[in-house]
Amino acid sequence: MFDPVQLRTFLTVAQTLSFTQAAHRLGLRQSTVSQQVRKLEAAAGRQLFGRDTHGVELTEDGEAMLGFARTILEANERAANWFTGTRLRGRLRFGASEDFVLTRLPEILEGFRRDHPEVDLELTVELSGTLHERLRAGRLDLVLAKRSEDRPQGRLVWRDRLVWIGGERLRIDPDRPVPLIVFPPPGLTRARALEVLERHGRPWRIVCTSGSLNGLVAAARAGLGVMAHTRGLIPPGLVRVPERAGLPDLGAVDFVLLHGERGRRDGPARAAAEALAAAVLAGGDRLQRAPSR
């Protein structure tokens, strides 16, 4: 009933909430993307997107279609792999920042391991800045991380905003330096937080540094201070710092997939990297649409 090509286009638009960005990612004309979405809406007999001058949003039926589309496409891929006898093999060195590993990434990796059991997957969990460095050094084949300002390349998975978070009882004294809970260098959220505070002339002091997200979350829950974090991935027990605290806006952050040289040139590694990249992109709507707190 539903065309897999149209379903993939639908998922891409849902991930980006932009027909223009979806067309760029898919290598299609924007008119083609719009046409495929209209055909899918006609097949479903429901409107899947709400469109106005401000942007694109999923309708209630569009939200429902997300789960159906993923299930249909995953089933198609498993069936195709079974009957064509294709089996991915080789070693794949994948790096992901801790934000993802503690939230939605496990289900994506579980599906990849189920579909490609002969791929030797090596997972590295690190700060985004460290992952970028290891990718440049040839120590990783594929990376899922925040976009680095000095490396603007990469396939967009989703975009979110950085916000200040802390414990529910935390109160910020406007007459004292902002107490910061941060990753060590080269953490990208750390760099953004310090740059924004400096630009707005807001004094700050570091009260906790940890290379582990669990360590940062524990410090924040204890009320030691505030931390910069992705709005859609706020850990349980922490909340957004209210605007009345007067902390400056941290702006948006992009989460991207980047291929290393070996992941582009080596045959088995390239095939495995492309398969995992496709799984991450297909699940990007789950990450992007994680409930905000």
Results as ranks from 00 to 15, higher is better:
21 Q>A: 11
21 Q>Y: 03
22 A>D: 12
24 H>P: 00
24 H>L: 12
25 R>W: 01
25 R>Q: 15
28 L>Q: 10
29 R>A: 09
30 Q>L: 01
35 Q>N: 14
42 A>D: 12
45 G>Y: 07
48 L>S: 05
52 D>V: 03
55 G>S: 11
55 G>C: 12
56 V>H: 04
61 D>M: 06
62 G>A: 11
63 E>K: 09
63 E>S: 03
65 M>I: 04
66 L>F: 06
68 F>S: 09
68 F>R: 13
70 R>G: 10
71 T>V: 10
73 L>W: 04
75 A>P: 03
75 A>D: 12
76 N>M: 09
78 R>L: 13
78 R>T: 12
79 A>H: 10
82 W>G: 01
83 F>R: 15
87 R>Y: 03
90 G>M: 13
90 G>I: 12
91 R>E: 15
93 R>L: 03
96 A>G: 03
97 S>D: 10
98 E>D: 14
100 F>P: 02
102 L>A: 10
104 R>A: 05
111 G>Y: 01
112 F>Q: 07
114 R>N: 03
116 H>Q: 14
116 H>G: 07
121 L>D: 07
125 V>L: 06
128 S>L: 02
129 G>M: 12
131 L>K: 10
134 R>L: 11
135 L>Y: 02
135 L>I: 07
137 A>P: 10
140 L>H: 01
148 S>R: 08
152 P>S: 05
155 R>K: 12
